[in-house]
Write a protein that binds this DNA or RNA. Structure first.
Length: 563
RNA sequence: CGGGGAGUAGCUCAGCCCGGCUAGAGCGCUUGGUUUGGGACCAAGAAGUCGCAGGUUCGAAUCCUGUCUCCCCGACCA
């Protein structure tokens, strides 16, 4: 492709609306332009990369027997009402104003609808139906460029099986296909087991990429691969001690000591000798949640333990409930329900709030001083703690969800009456699975992992072009003729070549554009080297340069591109 | 939906607090010329309903009210 004839709007300056690297690079390198919040146009170069991602996905989906469909994005609302998902999606679903249609946020209903009556026998099963299509979700807050948009491209596939045992097989096929897809795209990713929540199913896994731009927080063990959403993650952490002898409770005047850190500093004690209290309101009733030291309450775990409605108490409620303000609250003498984290089990000689402003208590023995204690896992895992599986070190970080695979079961087939006849002639609901990949997210994640201060670094599988041919001075006849000839020869030889043939652009400008656009190899044609019949090859990623004879160019290219 | 920030030329932004000449800069763009190994130089030029609506005023980019849009943090995220 010739640069001079292409729409390739590169930007020298960082656009104001972009914050994260992938978003900045997508705009600067002319891959996308924003139309509205969470709505992007893919420009030719960006779409070329996106197609490469889609091609890889297609190949791997076809390899597990997937059949490509193209379902409509515009759906009759009625079908979605039958599964109760118009209500379930609520404001997230886009509704058409002048007809009873919705814009599809996913396609379980439509797949089930088509399967109904068409798949009638066990002999028709299993099936894997997939598509690569635009999805619409009215996200309250689109963010991070294409990572969370109101309109985005998803590869979604659906397995149709006769039994849960067969669903396991379809699920495994997808699991393997997804790993191949992300491997081929050159992504560093990991897999998190998750509960399937409101999708209604038994098992699900999320494919994640570590990134500060991510919306999920996960705990991950590099060594054994243990990975869990922070909401459910567990770890091995040192518990509070039970000393042989319990001291007597005693009151300590602690003026202006509000936090655990301040308490430790004031009394010269260790965090593990302290207990922090948090008051929550559960269905209108106060609950004291006692945590060891500076451990944070994990509200998802707390919610699971308490059930019902859970919220932190307001500051003005604290005084009324405990007699003290935040920073001086403790379990001794607390008149309502108390639950504590497992790490505090049976601890003694603890320091905690006295339920009296500016006072703490020492010598607390939870067994002795606090009646009716309940212990649960309530803490939030932190970086550096030990893996519950292999005891090596856990890391906690943000991550982007790239793909999600679900065992759906019969929720949709039962709601829509999608049945088949088994060998004995008995009617059975089809067992479904659903498997998504955020296509744009693959690209965004790739960029988050492959760039430097000069721009994008494409590796061959996704690179829009393999070779960026740079003619340094097109006004020099030798340079323009040679580079033109190289462009034709290399293109004919099957290489994808981007030819910077711009006449009135200076050398430095071309170099900077080339580094920004990030093709794996830059082929530089200049007067200087051409005098000796030579050209220069530069590897974008490493910066290595080779001056080669024109006659040896193709051999060298072959070598470099196959490395 | 809560909190914060921003809308002025294609892009990045200044001007606004303290109202007052034809509304500016850099980059980009057009034309001519000189340049061509790391975002060149000279000259001439085109380009803005100052987000929108209303108000105050002799006079509004600037002050007031409303409204829309965008960005960030949070909530939310099958």
């Amino acid at each position: 492709m010739k640069f001079s004839k292409s729409f390739l709007p590169t930007l020298k300056e960082t656009p104001a609306e972009a914050v994260i690297p992938s978003h900045i690079l997508m705009i600067r390198a002319g891959l996308v332009r924003q139309l509205s919040a969470g709505i992007y146009t893919w420009l030719p170069l960006g779409y070329k990369v996106l197609r490469k991602v889609m091609d890889i996905i297609r190949e791997e989906m076809n390899a597990i027997g997937g059949q490509e469909f193209h379902y409509p994005a515009l759906n009759p609302k009625e079908i979605w009402e039958q599964t109760g998902r118009v209500e379930a999606f609520g404001d997230i679903m886009f509704h058409i104003k002048n007809r009873d249609y919705i814009l599809a946020p996913t396609h379980e209903e439509i797949v089930a609808w088509h399967a109904k009556g068409a798949i009638t026998s066990y002999k028709d099963l299993p099936q894997i139906w997939y598509q690569i299509q635009t999805k619409f979700r009215n996200e309250p807050r689109p963010r991070s460029g294409v990572i969370r948009g109101r309109q985005f491209i998803m590869k979604d596939s659906y397995s149709l099986d006769r039994s849960f045992e067969d669903l396991d097989k379809s699920y495994e096929l997808h699991d393997r296909a997804y790993r191949k897809i992300f491997d081929r795209c050159g992504l560093k990713y990991f897999v998190v087991g998750a509960s399937s929540g409101a999708m209604g199913g038994s098992k699900s896994e999320e494919f994640m990429v570590k990134s500060d731009a991510g919306e999920d927080t996960v705990a991950y063990c590099e060594k054994c691969g243990y990975a869990a959403n922070i909401e459910v993650a567990q770890s091995i952490a040192a518990p509070a001690k039970r000393h042989e002898e319990s001291k007597e409770i005693y009151e300590i005047h602690t003026p202006n000591v509000k936090s655990i850190d301040e308490l430790c500093e004031f009394l010269k004690i260790d965090e593990h000798e302290t207990a922090k209290s948090r008051i929550y309101i559960n269905d209108g009733k106060p609950v004291l949640v006692l945590m060891l030291g500076n451990d944070e309450v994990n509200e998802t775990k707390l919610q699971a333990v308490l059930g019902g409605n859970v919220r932190p108490a307001h500051p003005d409620e604290l005084k009324e409930i405990t007699g003290a303000d935040a920073g001086s609250i403790g379990p001794v003498g607390f008149k309502h329900r108390i639950i504590a984290d497992n790490l505090l089990k049976d601890a003694n000689n603890l320091y905690s709030g006295a339920n009296k402003n500016d006072y703490h208590l020492g010598g607390i023995d939870l067994k002795r001083d606090v009646p009716q204690f309940e212990y649960y896992d309530l803490r939030t895992v932190e970086s550096g703690e030990k893996c519950i599986r292999c005891n090596s070190t856990l890391e906690v970080f943000k991550a982007i969800e790239l793909g999600h695979i679900f065992k759906l079961g019969t929720k949709y087939s039962e709601a829509l009456g999608v049945n088949y006849l088994d060998e004995s002639g008995k009617e059975q609901p089809i067992v479904m699975g659903s498997y998504g990949i955020g296509v744009e997210r693959v690209l965004a994640c790739y960029l988050e992992q492959n760039y430097d201060e000069r721009g994008i670094i494409w590796k061959k599988p996704l690179a829009p072009f393999e070779i960026h041919l740079i003619a340094l001075n097109m006004k020099n006849q030798n340079v323009s003729e040679t580079s033109e000839q190289l462009y034709n020869e290399l293109s004919d030889a099957g290489y994808e070549v981007l030819f910077d043939d711009r006449i009135d652009v200076s050398a430095g400008f071309k170099f900077n554009d080339a580094d920004l656009l990030g093709m794996p190899i830059q082929l530089i044609v200049s007067e200087k080297n051409l005098k000796d019949g030579k050209v220069e090859l530069k590897i974008r990623q490493s910066g290595e340069k080779y001056i080669v004879q024109l006659t040896e160019l193709k051999d060298k290219l072959k070598k470099l591109l196959n490395e």
